[in-house]
Simulated assay, not measured.
Amino acid sequence: MGTQFGGGARFDRAQFGGDASFIRAHFASTAGFVEAQFTHDAGFNEAQFTGSAMFGRAQFVGDAAFLDAQFTGDARFIGTQFGGDTWFVGAKFGATAQFEAQFGGGGMFGRAQFATALDQLGEEPGSATIAAFLPRVQKAVVQMISVRGM
């Protein structure tokens, strides 16, 4: 078991100069990483976010790993920049999962589970919005396939 945060944990505007490890951490309330900067790799593998997980405008320069992380509350990655490879493989999202993010490397979501529709649009999508978004999805899938060499 990792570090336990019983109340809200606010790392807003924090700068992590080396590798940041929150592996198996448990956030019992809101976890705030708004505008945080991760200059190296960041690990949130098997972390549990009971409250909201807020990563708005956070910057991940290295790789970011959320392998088997559990998000019970809302997970918001609005304006987030992932510079390296990013893994959400096996992650579970129990509420809204909102990704308005830029993935500089690969964005891997294999085996991820979403309780509600994945919100990459920031709104309730109508047919016109979905039609405009589909080319972005296709491009992302092509990039993931080329990264994996399939």
Rank of each mutant, 00 (worst) to 15 (best):
M1E: 14
M1A: 15
M1H: 09
G2R: 03
G2F: 03
T3V: 14
T3H: 09
F5P: 01
G6C: 02
G6F: 02
G7E: 05
G7L: 07
G7P: 02
G7T: 09
G8E: 12
R10H: 08
R10L: 05
D12K: 06
R13C: 10
R13K: 11
A14H: 06
F16N: 07
G17D: 06
S21I: 05
F22L: 13
I23S: 14
I23R: 14
R24F: 03
R24Y: 03
A28S: 15
A31I: 05
G32C: 05
V34W: 00
Q37W: 10
D41Y: 00
A42W: 00
G43I: 09
E46Y: 04
E46R: 14
E46A: 12
A47H: 00
T50G: 13
T50E: 10
T50L: 13
S52E: 08
S52C: 04
M54V: 04
G56T: 05
R57S: 11
Q59Y: 08
F60S: 04
F60W: 03
V61N: 02
D63C: 06
A64W: 01
A64D: 04
A65T: 10
F66V: 06
L67P: 00
D68S: 12
F71L: 09
F71S: 06
T72I: 06
A75C: 08
R76L: 13
F77D: 01
I78N: 14
T80N: 08
Q81Y: 01
Q81K: 07
Q81C: 03
F82T: 08
F82N: 04
G83A: 04
D85F: 05
D85S: 09
T86I: 07
W87C: 07
W87H: 07
F88W: 08
F88I: 12
A91I: 05
K92D: 00
K92W: 00
K92C: 01
K92T: 04
G94M: 02
G94L: 01
A95L: 03
A95Q: 03
T96Q: 15
T96E: 15
T96A: 15
T96D: 15
A97S: 13
Q98M: 11
F99C: 10
F99A: 09
E100M: 14
A101M: 01
A101W: 00
Q102H: 06
Q102N: 06
F103A: 13
F103N: 13
G104V: 11
F109K: 13
F109L: 15
F109V: 14
G110S: 05
G110D: 04
A112E: 01
F114M: 09
A115Q: 12
T116Y: 10
T116Q: 14
A117F: 09
A117P: 06
L118T: 12
L118S: 08
L118C: 10
D119W: 00
D119M: 02
Q120A: 14
Q120N: 15
L121F: 13
G122A: 07
G122T: 08
E123G: 11
E123L: 14
E124N: 13
E124T: 15
P125H: 02
T129G: 15
T129P: 09
I130F: 11
I130V: 15
I130R: 07
I130L: 13
I130N: 05
A132Y: 01
L134T: 14
P135W: 00
P135T: 00
V137N: 08
K139P: 01
V141R: 15
V141A: 15
Q143G: 03
Q143R: 11
M144E: 11
I145Q: 12
S146G: 03
R148S: 07
M150C: 03
